[in-house]
């Protein structure tokens, strides 16, 4: 199963706001760790190593210069 990059989240604005709110009051280091915990939780949920590898690759490629 390849990484699914079609739009899948029904209300992106709400989820985006949720993500930003989760970082409220955190300093740079704590914020980074929150993101790290989030990544790990989601990675475990996905589980499939091929999908995770592809996600990492696409994430690296998608940075704007």
């Amino acid at each position: 199963m390849p990484l699914d990059t079609r739009p899948r989240v029904a209300d992106p604005d709400a989820i985006f706001a949720l993500l930003v709110e989760a970082h409220a009051g955190l300093d740079e280091a704590a914020s980074r760790r929150l993101d790290a915990r989030l990544v790990l939780l989601l990675m475990n949920h996905i589980g499939d190593e091929a999908v995770l590898r592809e996600a990492i690759r696409l994430a690296r490629e998608s940075a704007q210069a």
Partner: peptide, 10 residues
């Protein structure tokens, strides 16, 4: 370090 500490937190 952030990922390492995140693993330990979880």
């Amino acid at each position: 370090r952030a990922y390492r500490d995140a693993v330990l937190d979880l």
